[in-house]
Structure formats: structure tokens, C-alpha cells
Design a protein around this nucleic acid. Structure first.
Length: 496
DNA sequence: ATGTCC
């Protein structure tokens, strides 16, 4: 059992339900035999403080539920930012056999390919500071935000099919980006396995007007400054240096991905029943990977992945335009190159070593970032000697991190690490506790400016509603799964 | 996260 240093009743109850063994300062474990029906153990990468927060909601219960699924390898993983999600914890990873395992839409989440990209510049704080408010206003105009909001273009019926099939490549071919952008996206920003015809007309109708829009919640575009370097060699390789201005964008597949998840949860619930799969929680509905239902979901989910990559690419385009307009030079001149783009909500087939043999596995990453180390062919050639950039956004007004995938991640987390700070307080509780106007004023006092579509949204995203992103990055680093490269601090935020 | 209830 872990120490009973916290007095929270819910946490104590969870301690009692799950015998948790402390392996190290940053690793905890629930044995496979802890509960009848578990097929694999659960590994939790966290410190005592982060673990005690997970024990205040159903995070660990959900990870134990996931461990009941068929065809899983090694263990279910909870990352330091883990919190409760739909069926499957956010900050969770599970890998099932690519032929005999299962796929669970809840293991990807509603916001399919929610993710982050980082754009670097040749600008420094003194270039940007006098124009910061103007830049934020221009970004806010160029990149519409808020629930149900559309982007600056509306796709026709033929175009949405092409976006779903081609992802980032569609955007670049249509003038919304540079050829080099594709190289610096996970999967080059295009899943060739996408099946646009498996995406419902409703999902396409929702998505068509939304390409190039931000959405709401914790989605943002931030102007940040490189604050601290931990790993000079990797920083140099990623084109990052102290004092440099960078732009981080965090968004996903908007209403389209939500609709795909929602449509296929119904399909997969039916499949689970038909194939006689016993589910510890209905929200964990899953289908055998080789079933028709799974193939259809995978085709649609891959199309939604492409939509999200294209969305972040459009946002990159409009960001470059905003900088050009306000600062009066070309974005090529500002060297606004893409550092990298990572997905946080995804399932895909990868090759991993299991018991000394190479196997194809379906890795579910929900609120988790791929963190491949040096040498893996999936890492862009320019980065292959150091490893994949891992982008961890903080909550509004707090730091964000760039890490680099470390070799140990392949042994202990299916090449994955954390994805963000992780909520600590529900949106509704945050709205009861804070007023958006006060949060904005408090951040402005610290020199961080916000352009937002809604006061309620600002209150929901109050920094105190989130876990400590510095602790999350530190645990990943100490556990040796992805190590810190640079710390970024916000100067201005555009959000929904 | 989400046309925050077809």
C-alpha cells in the first residue's frame, strides 16, 4: 500500500480497493492478481502527490477495468497526468495484439487526434513584446474559437472527402503550408488507412465548416518564450534556444471527431454484445480487431485523425499570416518552421518488443504522447540521432515543455509519455470557484495576455484547476521515459 | 473534449 499521507476519504477508499505497491519514487503497481479477471497488471508513473490526486476520482478504477480487456500485452499504463475519462483513463496507454486483440473507442476518446504542434521563430521577446496585444487580436480573428464555431473556409462535399483521406497533405497541396511541414508531423500528418466513406454524413456536415478552428476547453494557441534549456544538444537539434519566441497550438478534430466516436461507440457496443465480450464497464465497449465493426471504426477514426492534422495545419497557416501582417515581413523570414506535431488521442499499429520478440500491437494512447527514442525510423531524419520531440502543454498561464523520447520508453510504456497537466477540478467546480474576468486580470498582472471567446471558458481553465505540469514533466524525466529538453513560458494566449 | 439534451 502507498503511504496514507492524504486524508481524503475517496482516496482512502480507493487505496483499500486496490493494493498499490510502490516500486520507486515515480512508479507504482497493481498486481494482475489484485482483482479477478485482470489479464495484465497496471503500472502508474507518478509521484506520491500526483497519485493521491488520481485516487480522488475513478482514474485507477478505470485502469484496472482496462486491464480486463482481451489480448493485452505487458501492462496497462497510467501516466503522471492521469485522470478520469470516458471508460478509459485520460493519461492511459494499453496495447493489444494487432490480430487477436481488441480496439476500444473509449481508449482513444471523443476528441480523436487532439494534439499539439510547436512552431519556432527567429524572433526574440524584444521583437514581439511591443506587438503582443496586436498579434493576439490578429490570431483571434484568424483562428475562430469557441463551441460550435466554424473556421475561415467552408469545405464543399468533395473537399471534405479529400481532407479525410489526405490530412496535412491536403492542406499543404492547397496552399495552407510548406512542404517541409509534413516531415515534422507524427505519421507525416496522414494516415493512409483512412476510410472517408466510413465517416457518417452527420460527422462530415459538422466538420465541413470547422477546419482551421480552435474549439473550446483547454484548446489554445499560445505565444511562448523558451525559458530554460535542460538538454542543449536536443534543443539545438530541434532548433530551440533560450529567449526564442515559439507558438504552440493545441486542438483536435472538433465536432467531426466527436461525432465519429459517438457513432462508433454505438456500433462497438453492439459488436461487444454479439461477440460475447464481457465488459467491466459499458463505457469500455470494444470489438475484436479483426471484426467488421472494428475495421469500420478504424477506417473512420483514421479519417478523423487526418481531419485533426489538417486542422492544426490550417491553424499554422493562419498563424504565419497573422505574424506577417502584424510584424510586416514574411513568415519564411521569421523562420516559422514546424518543430513537431504530436497526437494525444490515437490508436494505431506499431511494432514493439514483447518478451524478446517483435510483435505488431494496437497501441491505444488516450491523453498520452508517443515518445519514440533515437533510432526509430518513425522519428524525422533530422531528429533521429536524438529522438522524437514530445510536446507537453501546460494549463493556461503555466509552463509547457518539450521533452525527447528516451530508449526506456520502449521497454516500460510502449514508447509513450504524458500529454499535459491533467485536470484536478471539474469544469463545473472551476466555474463555481472563479470568475473569468478575475482570472484574466490576475494573469495580465503577471504579463500574460488572453484573448478568449468566453469568460466561462477562462474560468474553467483557471491554472489552479489543473495539476502541476512541472511535476508531470519531472516524473516523466525521472522515470526515464521522456526527458526534458526545454521549458516554455506563455506570453499570450488565444482560447475558446 | 462536444451544435455541453434529437
Amino acid at each position: 500500500m502507498v503511504s496514507n499521507s492524504n486524508n481524503d476519504l475517496a482516496a482512502s477508499a480507493a487505496h483499500f480497493r486496490h493494493p498499490i505497491t510502490k516500486v520507486s519514487e515515480v512508479e507504482f503497481r497493481i498486481d494482475r492478481k489484485a482483482h479477478e479477471g485482470m489479464n495484465v497488471p497496471v503500472t502508474i508513473y507518478a509521484n506520491e502527490g500526483l497519485l493521491s490526486k488520481m485516487l480522488t476520482d475513478r482514474t485507477i478504477d478505470q485502469a484496472v477495468n482496462v486491464a480486463h480487456l482481451n489480448g493485452l500485452y505487458k501492462h496497462v499504463i497510467v501516466l503522471p497526468d492521469g485522470h478520469e475519462g470516458y471508460g478509459f483513463p485520460i493519461g492511459g496507454v494499453a496495447a493489444s495484439d494487432a490480430n487477436n486483440g481488441v480496439i476500444s473507442p473509449g481508449g482513444v476518446g471523443y476528441d480523436i487526434n487532439c494534439g499539439v504542434r510547436l512552431i519556432r521563430t527567429s524572433l526574440s521577446e524584444k521583437d514581439v513584446h511591443p506587438k503582443l496585444r496586436e498579434l493576439l487580436k490578429e490570431l483571434f480573428l484568424n483562428i475562430p474559437s469557441g463551441v460550435g464555431t466554424g473556421g475561415r473556409i467552408k469545405l464543399g462535399p468533395r473537399q471534405i472527402e479529400d481532407v479525410l483521406a489526405d490530412g496535412v497533405a491536403w492542406a499543404v497541396e492547397n496552399g495552407y503550408g510548406w512542404d517541409s511541414d509534413k516531415e515534422y508531423c507524427e505519421e507525416n500528418g496522414t494516415m493512409k488507412t483512412a476510410k472517408p466513406n466510413m465517416v457518417s454524413p452527420t460527422a462530415k456536415k459538422r466538420g465541413a465548416p470547422q477546419l482551421g478552428s480552435l474549439g473550446s476547453g483547454n484548446h489554445f494557441v499560445e505565444i511562448q518564450k523558451v525559458d530554460k534549456i535542460y538538454n542543449p544538444q536536443a534543443a539545438k537539434t530541434f532548433g530551440l534556444h533560450e529567449g526564442q519566441i515559439v507558438i504552440m497550438a493545441h486542438t483536435g478534430s472538433r465536432g467531426l471527431g466527436y461525432q465519429v466516436c459517438s457513432d462508433y461507440l454505438r456500433v462497438v457496443e453492439g459488436a461487444a454484445k454479439r461477440y460475447g465480450i464481457e465488459l467491466p464497464d459499458r463505457e469500455l465497449a470494444c470489438a475484436p480487431i479483426n471484426s467488421k465493426e472494428a475495421e469500420d471504426y478504424l477506417g473512420a477514426m483514421n479519417a478523423a485523425l487526418n481531419f485533426a492534422w489538417s486542422n492544426r495545419q490550417m491553424i499554422t497557416h493562419w498563424t504565419r499570416r497573422a505574424f506577417e501582417k502584424v510584424l510586416g515581413s514574411s513568415s519564411e523570414g521569421f523562420e516559422m518552421n514546424l518543430v513537431y506535431d504530436v497526437s494525444h488521442n490515437i490508436a494505431k499499429i506499431e511494432e514493439h518488443n514483447i518478451d524478446d520478440s517483435k510483435r505488431k500491437v494496437m497501441v491505444h494512447r488516450k491523453g498520452a504522447t508517443r515518445a519514440f527514442p533515437k533510432g526509430r525510423t518513425e522519428v524525422p531524419i533530422m531528429y533521429r540521432k536524438v529522438g522524437q520531440p514530445v510536446l507537453i502543454p501546460g494549463s493556461m498561464g503555466t509552463a509547457s515543455y518539450v521533452l525527447v523520447g528516451a530508449p526506456k520508453s520502449m521497454d516500460v510504456s510502449f514508447g509513450s509519455t504524458a500529454h499535459g497537466a491533467g485536470r484536478m477540478m471539474s469544469r463545473s467546480a472551476a466555474v463555481r470557484r472563479w470568475r473569468g474576468e478575475d482570472v484574466k486580470r490576475e494573469l495580465a498582472g503577471r504579463g500574460i495576455h488572453i484573448e478568449s471567446a468566453s469568460w466561462k471558458g477562462v474560468a474553467e481553465e483557471a491554472p489552479e484547476a489543473y495539476k502541476d505540469v512541472d511535476a508531470v514533466a519531472e516524473v516523466s524525466d525521472s522515470a526515464g521515459i521522456a526527458t526534458r529538453v526545454v521549458r516554455l513560458v506563455p506570453m499570450g494566449v488565444v482560447k475558446g
